[in-house]
Design a protein around this nucleic acid. Structure first.
Lengths: 222, 222, 222, 222
DNA sequence: ACACTCGGGACCTCCCGTTGTT
DNA sequence: AACAACGGGAGGTCCCGAGTGT
């Protein structure tokens, strides 16, 4: 779940490229925070191998906290949109698409990355309770996620694909929470087979959101 | 979810009480780790106000890590048994009992503690990926949890309360993961109403585990 | 004691004005050094709100030290001349003029500026012992001051206003030192009433420089 | 003006001696602050050659600031008492004793220490304006000094050694300020001959505090 | 003549763990 | 069994100055 692109790794002796530098810092930071946690990752570790120095970092960000904030606002939020909100918005069947997305995210993650969990969940668990700035930003990302999913569920209801007796907003939040729970469970048992069995069980539960009588097979297209 | 008993806070001027001291350290540590995280809580903070000194801590535990291990093994494991495994084992209906447990845990937690999440989940998210010793112990606790829940689900199947077409083990793990996901979601949005709506949606999904035709109302007692 | 003129504070979007920029930097620097000390004031703080960037600063001055030197040479020296040497040179009675100057300097300083002391004294106390370049320049300013005062005292002796049994040079230096001592005392007790009482006592001591028999009243005009 | 005793310089591998360590830190700190200023002296410089480590320093003082506070409260205040307040209290003639003290302080200071000024004055000039905690403590030391001197001047008035038409409190503060001014002047011109000439001129001014007709020679005993 | 970006070092702080002692 | 005192290292921050472009 979330395999960031590595920074260039070479010292840029050519012209200054502020945007490139800033991006390189954020990408390296996301990777390291993902692997080691926010607090446990020192700035030196963070910059190691990126060709960026602390001077540059502190030019682009006032402090480590602000770097973390920027990662949430500019990277993680975008990732949620790309991976969840947009595909759902264009899907023919919400339930099917949900199952596909979850499975895809797990399948795309190499087994040795499973143990690192989801960056969004990691930051939330580590920092939301002790840093209100983080909490606000993370909550805002979750809100986007919830709203995107809720909108799709609502559309699904209109299309007869989703039961109408459910609290759409709460269900959306629950689906998100369950997914993050699955991602979190991977940290204790980083095993792809186990992950896929969890995903399977998740799909079965999700199927319960269909109206009675509408079976999975009847809707599935592929 | 998990409101630890506070340590005494007074300096023990009486005879040395090794077990009491050890227990006091662990209780204080669990509280502080719960509120502030394992790494972010310094030993000095941890002992502040407990009347215990670092010397005592290092007599009972070789280092901070071992203290953390002991908390997982001796406190958190027990809590899971008390709150989940035992009630489920004695329950008449698994599905009902599951819904009751989840609701109870959330309801019992004061709103200002919601933001601290579940200690087990917190430790897992923070440490499982970077400390194999923690990971092993945490995984073992999860295994107890999973097995206890799976056994109850199996019994439920025999009693006709649970669908027989499900992967019991995977479903048990999913239920645990979803619950931890809900607990984790509280850290970003520490709001009791939101929590209870999530719990409600969770109950609805869980109801999908009943065999077709067995409605909730038919079983519900209150 | 020394209320510097504030820099413009607006970004100069018009044509480059080297002298204006240089002057703006020095004025801002003097103000900030006066308020916060030389070392404790960073270049960024210094330029904040001036509309000048570090690039401009480093075009006009090779480094922070040189900026400090220029302030001593070009600004502080001039201030001493304006406020002390010139008035004394044109005075009818040295002793009277001395008392007037000291009182005026204190009275002109707003109470909330008293605590910042005298820029010359500040720089001397902070830097003379650790930076020989500063020491030399500051000593040179003091020399001007001493010589100006000594010349006036000498003229006073010729006019029968000053005792002839004193070491004029040493007395001049002592008067300067005492004044700086008073200015320095303001930093610990930034209180205008206290300052004026000190000035009063200073005047009484200074009166001891008159020849015996020449009372203050006989000369005083106001 | 204040030549501190050097710390032992050897690592104490024997038993812990908390008081000795604390004292060693403060003495080393006073010396270094005296020579290089408070802010400009790093903790590493401070501890270099003392055999004390940063761990010990931060056990005895919460931070650098608190170390500075302790030096003012526990060392500098005592020095003022020893060198000024007590001798004046036991003196037969205030004016004479004042002149002796000033001369003694200057004469006792090796020429290469003249440039470092007076620790009390140094701290005041550097920190009083930017650190209210320092200002308060320094002001309190000055108050002790002023009061001690004022009491002696008052006694001198009763004994007919001091003019009765002066503001004793203001005069005491002025004498202190002038002395600190002289000490400060040494930083720009660290020259013993110059210092003694200043002291001589100071003595002549101080003599003006005697009642008219009472000459120095008539009272002097030695 | 001046602006933006970056380099690298040093400083205060703080933290985990140990040691000698009772 | 417990405590006060201490060792040593690393982390975030910040700052002076250099470099390139315009």
């Amino acid at each position: 779940m979330f395999i960031p692109i590595r920074a260039c790794g070479k010292r840029c002796t050519t012209a200054k490229q502020p945007d490139v530098t800033r991006q390189a810092i954020m990408e390296a930071a996301l990777t390291r925070f993902h692997e080691g946690g926010f607090s446990a990752t020192s700035l030196d570790q963070l910059l190691e191998g990126t060709g960026v120095t602390k001077g540059a970092l502190y030019y682009h960000f006032p402090n480590k906290q602000a770097l973390g904030y920027a990662i949430v606002d500019e990277m993680i939020r975008g990732w949620i949109h790309e991976r969840w909100v947009r595909p759902l918005a264009h899907a023919e069947n919400v339930i099917e698409e949900l199952k596909i997305i979850v499975r895809r995210v797990i399948e795309e993650t190499p087994e040795n990355f499973l143990a690192f969990g989801c960056p969004l969940n990691n930051l939330t668990q580590e920092l939301a309770a002790v840093d209100e700035g983080f909490r606000t930003r993370l909550a805002s990302v979750y809100q986007d996620w919830h709203e995107g999913l809720a909108a799709s569920l609502h559309k699904g209801q209109a299309a007869g694909q989703v039961r109408t007796d459910i609290d759409v907003a709460a269900t959306a939040a629950l689906v998100v929470a369950s997914f993050e729970g699955i991602a979190g469970a991977m940290k204790a048992a980083p095993n792809k087979d186990f992950a896929l069995r969890l995903v399977g069980a998740f799909g079965q539960l999700i199927d319960g959101l269909r109206p009675a009588g509408v079976t999975q097979e009847a809707v599935s297209v592929d």
